[in-house]
Design a binder for these strands. Structure first.
Lengths: 325, 325
DNA sequence: TTGTATGCGTTATCAG
DNA sequence: CTGATAACGCATACAA
């Protein structure tokens, strides 16, 4: 494949002039520009971007770290990221890590290796301190609430959001409230769990460990959870479920069992997914798309040097009242 | 940041030796290797991959072209792709194109520009002939049935799959069958539409254009479609709906209206999504995850030169009987 | 407005 | 086993 040198030779100009044309620099006479463009056309030339990346030290690529892409939560954030990346003419490298720390570190290494200009960590198994070790190599941003770290973040306050959900249930007269969670050790999961336990304590209600369930990730898990609860001697009258799709699985199973919602069991979901909308699920919207979009915009500012200090951007959650409570 | 030259100087060896250590080449004496490794550690050195990409002409990056990531269909294929990419130590660049041809061309340009080693086109607005113009720059693979093209493909026969769905409905006694589609002009959409029209013709049934609907993409669209059909004078007794989530929206709306499924209206979905499983939706499974995984594996073989001719790999669809027919 | 010369950081080549 | 040197293809400081 032809290179810039050959274009220069054939067009009868210097490589510098070719480079100028390629990068739309001023100070190139119209006839030389035309000659270069024609030669480029004629030889079907195209730049080797790796050389450009090497010399400029930039790649216009941002990596995204998440465990699985085929979950509504992640793919909606990704959509927001991708939309903004498209606008900014950046590329996203999707790093589906399956929560394996080794793979997550791999991505951070890419930052060191100059393969990418920045990293968005949507969800990770790494400790914040480990992430912080890489901040020197380029901008990093997480979509979790990690406190005042050396890397940026865009987040919603899950503690307050959960608290609002619990308050809402309490206001509706519920005093027996259960809780369904996906991961047990996740950064956000832990925050939500704390919110739940704190709430019970403040209310002076006992903690029923059997009303708390971890590992509820799929629709089927939601259905199974309902059966588990029904088998208990004493059971909650309301549930807070992290993940609308899990709540949906539970609700549909409840219908099959001719359980009425909310009369027999009230449910609040989390994330505001389409399936919840369809089922009339009361839920808490976390602005996932906006989170992705904002994350990219903030990271871009840092890549472009317009912002040098870590930024911590809070997004507002919103309780969406429907008919499941 | 330190470079290979500095490592060589400090370790007291040549850059070649450092490079050999970096790439685990044999023929390096243990003591020199140790010296290099220690210096690397000491200087916190890491490779500039852009230089590696430039000289090797490879990047271990594959681009994925799709319109939106936040649709079950696409994100499941992406999951399959990502899983295999992880295994092969390749990276995926997600190019969410919103079906804009300009953006899709951009990605193919990346192949010319040596930024990526290959392209997977999951769904695209480009004509196959346009894609073919880029096959000289590196391996390209689509997830659509484009016939014997100069690029590879992994696909399911939507024509046959739809035909099987229609046969199934007919076997159940339905003679008034409607059809819901997402895009009107998409490559797969056109194939399915042909299958539908051909089927009616073979059966000798008239085509009711008002039983055909395009632009049904969301759950809400499904619900709206039901209302549209109910307002007709004569309406179908069964529906074939491309996309389980759309079918789900319709089914849940039917429940609200106290319409019985399948007695009042039979429904077959497409894609086998979790929501369909939950609702007892009879559907056609298209092996989306497997499609992504297979796509990556095939493309990788071509990148590695183990396969030089375009490959066309057919995946089997499967009708999943549940209770909506 | 144009061109020359240099450097980006690595791997490949080839001679020892 | 080791090393000197030539690529890879481009952008840019500097000189003209």
């Amino acid at each position: 494949m032809a290179n810039i040198k050959e274009i220069a030779r054939i067009a009868g100009v210097s490589v510098t002039t070719v480079s100028r044309v390629l990068n739309n620099h001023p100070y190139v006479s119209p006839d030389k520009r035309a000659a270069v463009l024609q030669t480029i056309e004629q030889l079907n030339y195209s730049r080797n971007m790796n050389a450009v990346h090497l010399i400029t030290g930039r790649t216009r690529v941002v990596a995204v770290v998440l465990p699985f892409i085929n979950l509504f939560y992640f793919s909606l954030i990704m959509e927001g990221l991708a939309h903004e990346a498209l606008l900014a003419q950046y590329r996203l490298v999707l790093c589906q890590t399956n929560y394996e720390p080794e793979e997550e570190l791999h991505v951070l290494e890419m930052l060191r290796n100059k393969e990418i200009d920045g990293v968005v960590i949507v969800s990770s198994a790494l400790k914040p301190e480990v992430i912080e070790e890489f901040t020197g190599y380029g901008p990093i941003l997480t979509c979790q609430d990690n406190g005042p770290r050396q890397f940026s973040s865009v987040y919603v306050e899950h503690y307050a959001a959960f608290r609002e959900g619990l308050d809402y249930l309490a206001a509706k007269g519920h005093t027996a409230i259960g809780y369904c969670e996906g991961r047990q050790q996740g950064s956000s999961s832990l925050i939500r769990q704390t919110a739940y336990r704190d709430f019970l304590q403040v209310q002076g209600w006992p903690v029923h460990e059997e009303w708390i369930s971890f590992g509820c990730r799929t629709e089927e898990d939601g259905a199974a959870e309902l059966h588990r609860l029904l088998a208990l001697n004493s059971r909650p009258s309301a549930l807070l479920i992290a993940g609308d799709h899990v709540a949906a699985g539970l609700m549909l199973e409840a219908r099959k069992l001719r359980l009425r919602i909310p009369e027999d069991l009230a449910v609040i979901g989390f994330d505001n997914q389409p399936i919840g909308r369809l089922l009339g699920l009361t839920t808490i919207d976390n602005q996932l798309y906006e989170m992705g979009a904002t994350a990219f915009r903030l990271l871009l500012r840092q890549i472009q040097g317009e912002e040098t200090e870590p930024v911590h951007h809070k997004l507002e959650y919103r309780l969406i009242e429907r008919s499941s409570v």
